[in-house]
Design a binder for these strands. Structure first.
Lengths: 202, 202
DNA sequence: TTCTTTCTGCACCGATCGGTATCTAAGTTT
DNA sequence: AAACTTAGATACCGATCGGTGCAGAAAGAA
């Protein structure tokens, strides 16, 4: 069985697909799905329409790939937060990550997972649904993590993991909206601190 | 001086401008500024493009008038909340109003002041700025109200009106995002209750 | 009646949308 | 060298965008 990975026949791609995807992610992050035109995207990516279609399919699949990259890049704070040993640290790290990612210098303000997912015309409905599912996934991960904390005695047995997860997600979403409105990192960190002040004691 | 309000010359308008504006508000509420096309708007309003332009100017002024109507209609809970005698009641009523307005049956989920204000292409930037200013206004009103509460001794002297206002606004914005994602009214009211659990005692 | 204004309805404007087609040139395989 | 694939550039597709122009009818004021 030949498993040698041979190079594909033909002229190799002349651009770095990862870097192009990174640039596309930034455009979607700032302008949302519908607000980002193909002209915006391809000129930021430094490639032609044809190359974009050959490499990524179409605008919608490009968006989905950009969202994946966002999850593993700027939004990786979420996965890291979930690994903290204590539920309180999970919540604290999640909100702190949300604050720093939505206010990172050199990146668009706000959260790609929230931008442009609220209102949409017909053409953006699929992207809107994808982002709603994305946020639901994040909330489910938090819920499972908090359930685990209850099982371990890390949270009081009366604590409601579903509610706690929704609460944290709500504050994080609000932080993203505030960031687009120009709120500074320190202002939002104060809000995050305030939101955690009523965290259930062990 | 003649102040008699005489009827304007010419054929009178054949539709109810208030009702047409109400319908337009609903479309903007659901689809955002850019996501709402003139075809969507005028067909919901039941009038032609020409009539719309004659009555409201253009799409942008129509949006601004719809936003005013929203402020005085569905979002009037904010003004009512500010009149409560105690700061705690202000915060409670503000969040409760936010929950009920973003999940009202027969109306789009979410908040017109948040929808479509996060991401925008070039054509939607003016509307985006208008909505950011709208949210800033709301936050300023809360801040002043909480400052007054501090002055009256209704809040502890160490309380930070700026932070409290931003905190409440952040939670309300997050509630709006959650509502678009399909969260129910009771789920969001629980979140609002949780957010107020750490309100400063008198 | 005459004037004025807005009505409805439809065609139309230039611009942009997402997406393709076509060309030549270039690089890597067999 | 032959086969293959991609790159870049440009022009184009039908559809839709926000916004107008024009026609004729309708209704109130002069």
């Amino acid at each position: 069985m030949e498993i040698t990975r041979r190079a594909p026949i033909g002229r190799p791609r002349g651009f770095d697909a990862d870097e192009a995807l990174e640039r596309a992610m930034m455009v979607f992050w700032q302008q949302g799905y519908e607000g980002a035109s193909l002209t915006d995207l391809t000129s930021a990516m430094g490639i032609t329409r044809k190359s974009m279609y050959a490499a990524f399919g179409n605008k919608e699949t490009l968006f989905r790939k950009a969202l994946e990259r966002y999850t593993e890049g700027p939004a990786a704070y979420a996965a890291r937060a979930l690994e903290k040993p204590r539920a309180r640290e999970v919540a604290t790290a999640f909100l702190a990550g949300s604050v720093s990612t939505t206010t990172r210098p050199g990146c668009p303000a706000g959260c790609l997972g929230v931008q442009g997912s609220l209102a949409a015309g017909d053409s953006g409905r699929a992207a809107q649904d994808a982002l709603i599912a994305w946020r639901d996934d994040g909330r489910a991960l938090l819920r499972h993590r908090f359930q685990q904390a209850v099982d371990e005695g890390d949270l009081p047995s009366g604590a409601d993991p579903e509610l706690l997860a929704r609460y944290i997600m709500t504050v994080a979403n609000g932080i993203a909206v505030q960031a687009v409105g120009g709120a500074s990192r320190s202002e939002l960190q104060q809000v995050a601190d305030a939101a955690l002040r009523n965290w259930p004691p062990v």
